[in-house]
């Protein structure tokens, strides 16, 4: 299996897609080879070195802890633990998190061993050995092994409260299906969908898929922003959070950390949409569901 990088870089940096891709071969994806750590160190673009948020050590400690806390058989449960803590440790703005080159660096130079631990399938396909999908190393925000966790925490948190993000990450179908929808960029929509999951209305893969489908289809003719108006977002809380990275303690391993103290999502807006989604979902065709549930 992949070894922990040696030498471990001190700081997060940018690794361009071109350089990332050439190291995501079958050897690395199957965990039989380490990425060429020394060579990778020469191919990165450094980021400002006075920024404490970019220190590798706190992130790497989290990764070591998550692999220690969860036995391999329960590794999917690790997402709900790691996502909020990764988000609270990095303290990135969306502007920064949108740079995929940083996630490439994390994936190949800082924690490829985690990606293999978390995403190596039990069986290979087409006679090949089991391999981690290349899109876990480099990919869209909803597939890349680290950015999916960061974005899930970002898009599903309710202000400083990561609890809805924990619900989202606790269900792989939610993480894989809802995270890729554009409609969750509207905060009340994201919260309303998570409420249905938390309430057990949509739980299985098929149910979550059906919920995603009806909510997405309805957004074609309904503007959720008007039906469920959210308060304006102000950047001040995020700015303070980023600035506070200097003096912030290490995120708690037991308690759920706090995110940036943005205003919580408007509660009436979430109620309105949750009710709407509940109605839509009851009429939705769900494979394997014979009759609509009571209600």
């Amino acid at each position: 299996m992949t070894d922990k990088p040696e030498p471990l870089p001190d700081r997060l940096a940018l690794l361009s897609d071109i350089n990332a891709v050439k190291h995501i071969g079958m050897g690395v994806r199957s965990g039989r080879e380490n990425p060429p750590y020394i060579e990778l160190g020469r191919q990165v673009t450094s980021l400002p070195d006075d920024d404490v948020r970019l220190r590798v050590e706190p992130v790497r400690d989290l990764i070591d802890d998550v692999m220690h806390l969860y036995p391999p058989a329960e590794r999917t449960r690790a997402d709900a633990w790691l996502a909020p803590r990764l988000h609270a440790t990095l303290r990135l703005t969306r502007r920064e998190a949108a740079d995929e080159a940083m996630w490439n660096h994390l994936a190949l130079a800082v924690a490829p061993d985690y990606l293999v631990w978390r995403h190596l399938p039990a069986k290979g396909k087409d006679g090949l050995p089991p391999m981690v999908s290349a899109s876990r190393f480099r990919g869209a925000h909803y597939t890349q092994g680290f950015s999916r966790l960061w974005w899930a925490a970002e898009l599903f948190r309710n202000g400083a409260d990561y609890a809805p993000a924990v619900v989202a990450c606790g269900n792989q179908d939610v993480l894989n299906t809802l995270l890729r929808l554009d409609i969750i960029d509207h905060r009340p929509t994201a919260q309303a969908m998570i409420r249905l999951v938390a309430d057990g209305v949509a739980r299985t893969g098929r149910e979550v898929n059906a919920l995603a489908t009806v909510a997405n289809a309805a957004a074609g003719t309904l503007l959720y922003d008007v039906l469920a108006e959210d308060d304006d977002w102000y950047g001040d809380a995020l700015e303070a959070w980023v600035a506070g990275a200097d003096s912030a303690p290490v995120v708690s391993r037991r308690r759920l950390p706090d995110g940036p103290a943005d205003d919580p999502v408007s509660a009436p807006a979430v109620d309105t949409l949750a009710e709407r989604f509940r109605e839509l979902f009851q009429d939705a065709p769900v494979r394997g569901r014979t009759a609509p549930p009571e209600g």
């Binding site: 969306r94 960029d185 509207h186």
Partner: peptide, 17 residues
Amino acid sequence: VSVVLVLTEKATNARTT
């Protein structure tokens, strides 16, 4: 009737109205 201005960016999943 209401008229809503929408500002989005795919790369940051940002949406403001």
